[in-house]
């Protein structure tokens, strides 16, 4: 997405050579390689958009779905907002931590997964719900959780 000329009080260098509007797209593209952005990726995103690494970090650090630390091959987002919370998401998260032997945000020992709590995923009709690499899961009961953990274990 290319930027249009603009009228606001905007950094003069931007009038000349920045492609700010592409930044989220660029970060997502770089993140697709390994699942997260390391410092070199931030510098690369800066190079591609004409922003500075600090300006990229201002955005990278704001968004939920940009990861600045290593994550597993898959990311499991578990909703902890109101509907899912009323339907047992806290227990779900605790179980996941226990059975994977990791804290939220860590990478499981086999590198397969990182579990992160998430705000409402728009899956309230499937509470408690989760999103595994964009794939909707829910309602997650004990049986489904077992199946999920098995699948995570098998995935290489």
């Amino acid at each position: 997405m290319a930027e249009q000329p603009n009228q606001n009080d905007i950094h003069p260098t931007e009038r000349i050579k920045k492609d700010r509007a592409a930044i989220v797209e660029v970060m997502m593209e770089l993140q697709a390689k390994r699942g997260f952005l390391d410092d070199q990726d931030v510098i690369e995103a800066a190079r591609r958009t004409g922003l500075s690494p600090t300006e990229v970090e201002e955005l990278a650090s704001f968004y939920t779905l940009i990861y600045r630390r290593p994550v597993g091959r898959r990311v499991l987002l578990v909703c902890d907002s109101v509907c899912c919370a009323m339907n047992g998401s806290e227990r779900l998260l605790n179980t996941l931590e226990r059975r994977l032997g990791i804290a939220l945000g860590e990478v499981s020992r086999d590198g397969a997964v990182t579990v992160l709590p998430s705000i409402c995923l728009g899956l309230c009709d499937r509470a408690p719900a989760a999103l595994l690499n964009g794939e909707a899961l829910g309602p997650l009961d004990d049986a489904r959780l077992d199946a999920l953990l098995l699948e995570l274990k098998r995935s290489r």
Binding site: P12, S52, T54, E57, F62
Partner: peptide, 15 residues
């Protein structure tokens, strides 16, 4: 830093 002095290496991070 950014808007007045037009620097680019100090920013507001996180939320």
């Amino acid at each position: 830093y950014q808007q007045y002095a037009l620097g680019t290496d100090l920013g507001a991070m996180r939320l």
